[in-house]
Design a protein around this nucleic acid. Sequence first.
DNA 1: CGACGGTTGGACGC
DNA 2: GCGTCCAACCGTCG
Length: 586
Amino acid sequence: MRFSHTLSKTPFLAPIMASGSVSGSASLVWFRKGLRIHDNPALEYASKGSKSVYPVFVIDPHYMEPDPNAFSPGSALAGLNRIRFLLESLVDLDLSLKKLGSRLLILKGEPSEVVIRCLKEWDIKKLCFEYDTEPYYQALDKKVKDYASTAGIEVFSPVSHTLFNPVDIIQKNGGRPALSYQSFLKLAGQPSWASSPLSISISSLPPIADVGSCEITEVPTVEELGYRDYEQDELTPFRGGESEALKRLRESISNKEWVANFEKPKGDPSAYAKPATTVLSPYLKTYTNVDLSHHCICILCFVTLPFSPFLISLQFGCLSSRYFYQCLINVYKNVKKHTSPPVSLVGQLLWRDFFYTVAFATPNFDRMKGNRICKQIPWNNDDELLAAWREARTGYPWIDAIMVQLRKWGWMHHLARHCVACFLTRGDLFVHWEKGRDVFERLLIDSDWALNNGNWMWLSCSSFFYQYNRIYSPVSFGKKYDPNGNYIRHFLPVLKDMPKQYIYEPWTAPLSVQTQAKCIIGRDYPKPVVSHDSASKECKRKLGEAYALNQKLNGQVSEDDLKDLRRKLEEDKEQESGSRRQKQKL
DNA sequence: CGACGGTTGGACGC
DNA sequence: GCGTCCAACCGTCG
């Protein structure tokens, strides 16, 4: 089967003929990510030679239950938009499985306990699930695999979420991950499966046998999970699920020019699809009609990034990154010239693998302490500043508008992500990147453990990127793209009548102008929490000192060392302001 | 050890 | 819209 079918409406036909085999036994497919039928080796293997297949998804209440103390609607770990996106993906998966004569079995509880109970109850002989490199799944899967091995159950756990097996690449490099993109490219080379067909179509599945005493439910709605009093305008226009992802993918790759010429775009972080109303359906319609060439300037950089459901869908695995890769290569074959990594579309997929690989090889990748590749920096612990950033009241309209978009849409342009991440950490507020990471993780519908942590380290100059003198200006960066401030006016309606010349710095507007615009700074919209000029200078000074300490101690910076550095920085600051006062006296 | 390049900074001059 | 300077970081490679 050649890949040239990709562009046609008919999907590849590499059907798995498995049903009807009477001699087989029962298999369980455990879905976690990889919420798809196409290119799903775990599902394919389970269905081969089994007389019955149980497709299972376990809802962990810890992940889904409403948390009344959270700063926005959602659970402690996931915002409502993220939860909805996941549920939509599950509904779509259930529908697809039903078309194949099966269905998705939803169970609730601690996932390893639930899966082990199912293995016993259903007399499972084969357990199949996608391999996952995240520490959470590594620990979870160990419990389940340990049980399976004592019970004599075969476990099949293929790598199918990324282009490469991170283990292979780390081994090639003598046990250490590449820390730069270029060295990663050299190590990685071509994926082994690049020119062989992926299994992207299944004609039928073996049936589900008796479910015994296990409690099975349908995919719950957000209301059934206990979410009731949320604002309609806080709901994302993005829809989850494999069907939508594949549809969008096919539409996008049918534009060969766009795929071939995709280049690190001069992306416009202020571009957004202007909703006609707050009602969702026309909103969605407007958005899906947006010209992809302008808006799908999607870099997978901060997570996956994209203004497009098919790229967002990589996260939950509604779309296979390998299938996407093959589609892109297929387009490249049919055009005279095309762009290359890091700027090409394939280059974006490789960024994703880059972060997965380094994350897998780095203990404590999601924190500063004990993280070999992370600079030890004396971030402050200012909850007031953090809250101002999180709640879109820093007083910098460009920053606040982006934070509103994050909350409402669960998505913003990658350069917009850069701006707010830089502002929170090394640029202005000097708040710990882990705090910002938590907010993104919860609110982004495309957040991903490896990419999110990697990019927060990148933006905070903790790893990968170290040019801490380059700071995004919370005023001029956005102005470059959107001098009229339309993006700000949209997401911060309180500023909608502020004249163009003050929209990025409304505190500089004369009181008469503020009155005219019906927005008094300090009353209707906050004054800046810090002065960017002095705050950014201060940040550079602290980063310089912290880097020097890291170098001096060869990365072995203890908590006491950081405490000492904090004290020193405070003293220097007082001395400086003291000498400034003296100068003024003289 | 030194040179080189790094997916996307800002300000300024032209 | 492009080049230059600013100041000068890091990992990689020879």
